[in-house]
């Protein structure tokens, strides 16, 4: 069973940045775009497990800090020509708070 869980206020996540949420021992990266959409996924790059939360966010992509693989925030897919995928975690904003379904 998964439920919507409140994790932070929107303003606790920097625009064009991310925060790390630790839940049941797993790290989740929660991103915020310039237009204030939020996206979440496991904080693990499909390439060699780099922490995606530490990457640079631009448009709806994050670039892994270790070797520069780009991951789409909406679907967790690596941007061509790279291959790989991180399963996305549903995220939403309500009344200025960020919720994840975990």
């Amino acid at each position: 069973m998964s439920d919507w869980v409140k994790v932070a206020r929107l303003d606790e996540i920097p625009r064009l940045g991310a925060r790390v949420v630790r839940s049941a021992g797993k790290e989740i990266a929660v991103f915020r775009t310039a237009e204030d959409q939020v996206y979440a996924m496991h904080d693990q790059c499909p390439h060699k497990g780099g922490p995606l939360s530490q990457g640079i966010v631009a448009g709806r992509q994050v670039t892994c800090p270790l070797h520069g693989m780009r991951i789409g925030l909406e679907d967790g897919q690596a941007v061509a020509p790279d291959h790989g995928c991180v399963p996305p975690i549903p995220a939403k904003i309500e009344d200025g708070a960020v919720y994840l379904r975990i």
């Binding site: 920097p14 940045g17 530490q54 990457g55 640079i56 800090p65």
Partner: peptide, 19 residues
């Protein structure tokens, strides 16, 4: 603008291969 800096300069430390 910290969000426009590579993580090393944003965190003021060198990221390692294991994060």
């Amino acid at each position: 603008d910290p969000q426009s800096r590579f993580i090393n300069e944003r965190a003021h430390a060198n990221i390692q291969k294991d994060g």
